[in-house]
Design a protein around this nucleic acid. Structure first.
Lengths: 235, 235
DNA sequence: CCATTACGCTACGACTCGTAGCGAAAGCTG
DNA sequence: CAGCTTTCGCTACGAGTCGTAGCGTAATGG
């Protein structure tokens, strides 16, 4: 018969993620691919089912009314399985939401303005999905009191997308639309500033003002971002 | 002896706010000052104590771990008193946070750039307070699934501060820094756009990037907002 | 004086949380 | 194949919170 369960290594362990599975796995994703151990491997299907069920629950219930027991039922797994893989609600939702943002791309449309409009529209399309809105805002709110969670959000979501700003600037500089950067430190600050302005404006428009970031809005936003307030006479 | 308590008029009533007290009172604040009724009046001191206790609890506990029972204990009132005045956690926190933003002003500093920098710094200072961060983000997150709550946030917080953008533009136009607006509809859209860009950038910088919106950052932000990306050669 | 309303307090059922324990299933390894 | 290891589903549990009901008391106004 099975032996008694050994003490659960739950709080703060580095697990053996066979698949691209979560639980402190996203943060340090440049690890050795598989610290294999013997025994029954974790079901990869359970991971995807749980994350999908989390997004569904976010749509129907929102953050505060989402319970882990309900997610487990939706995913067809036991509640204990869920707790074996994630430390709590915050971590689960971060992983469930992070997957949504990995589809962002920066297709080359020929000009800086068109590149910006394109990626901002993609970002707006993701934020238009209720699971993205509910989940992202909730974990950001929670991260105010939880440094580990904020770092997890930053590495899983924010920093991953900052590549888009870098890529767009390089293209614009190659085209001659933007001057080359002399001071690399200043350049890094500018990248952060632009990212905050773009992401912040779209988030605020979508969530606080609660109006769609459609093509017309994105066009106006891009014009202000590129030429400034005074440079946009309505004529 | 006291009669049996009549059915609580809790969900969806228009109460009689003697003081500037909450409970659906902020949304329609242009009401007759006091629809007086007989009986013992509600304690105004209890209102202020509850709202202050809510902010304290937000600082110490954050949103998710904040319980109404705890707030009641901090405020020195009974839990039932709290439920008699607010419908739930969301409404309470909205009122507690809204008070923080009423102190925003737009002092005339002589130029549009300095006006913007001044008000953005004020906004950043408010968002630097943990009770503002925790509470605001949490209710915004919840408002994704609650239209009434979003409307309450908009009327209590957002629209009240949009006056700052209007005021700043009027001054800039009077100074000749901005051209007069021909199309009033286009002008309204521009106000909304600017508000989303300013508030969104500060919020994203403070909460997501988790770095302070200090004077250097605000200066760079203002420069981009006024002159655009291409108009800021680092030299 | 008396009707009316707010207040503090206690208690309650319902729900969620996170964990423990068990037996069974699913892999790897010799 | 047998044997070991780890995961899985299930049940149960104490702790905590929720929102409400009920009661007696305090504070106003007519």
């Amino acid at each position: 018969m099975a032996l008694s369960a050994r003490p659960v290594p739950h709080p703060g362990d580095l697990p053996h993620c066979a698949t691209g599975n979560p639980r402190y796995g996203r943060g340090m994703q440049s690890r050795t691919p598989a610290p294999r151990t013997a025994g029954r491997p974790r079901s990869a299907a359970a991971d995807t089912a749980i994350l999908a069920a989390t997004r569904d629950a976010l749509v129907e219930l929102g953050w505060s009314k989402l319970t882990l027991g309900d997610v487990a039922t939706r995913a067809g797994v036991a509640k204990t399985t869920l707790y074996r893989r994630w430390a709590g609600k915050n971590e689960l939702v971060v992983d469930a939401v992070a997957e949504l943002f990995d589809e962002l791309q920066l297709p080359d449309r020929g000009t800086l303005a068109d590149d910006i409009e394109g990626v901002v529209l993609q970002f707006a399309a993701i934020l238009a999905r209720p699971e993205a809105r509910n989940g992202l805002m909730a974990v950001v709110a929670e991260s105010c009191r939880d440094d580990a969670l904020r770092e997890r959000i930053r590495s899983s979501i924010v920093d991953r997308q900052k590549r888009l700003v870098l890529e767009g600037r390089e293209r614009a500089q190659a085209r001659g639309e933007l001057p080359p950067e002399a001071d690399p430190e200043e350049a890094a600050r500018t990248v952060d500033l632009i990212f905050d302005m773009v992401a912040g404006a779209v988030v605020h428009r979508t969530l606080v003002s609660a109006e769609p970031a459609d093509e017309a809005w994105v066009h106006g936003f891009t014009r202000v971002l590129l030429t400034g307030l005074a440079g946009t006479p309505p004529g």
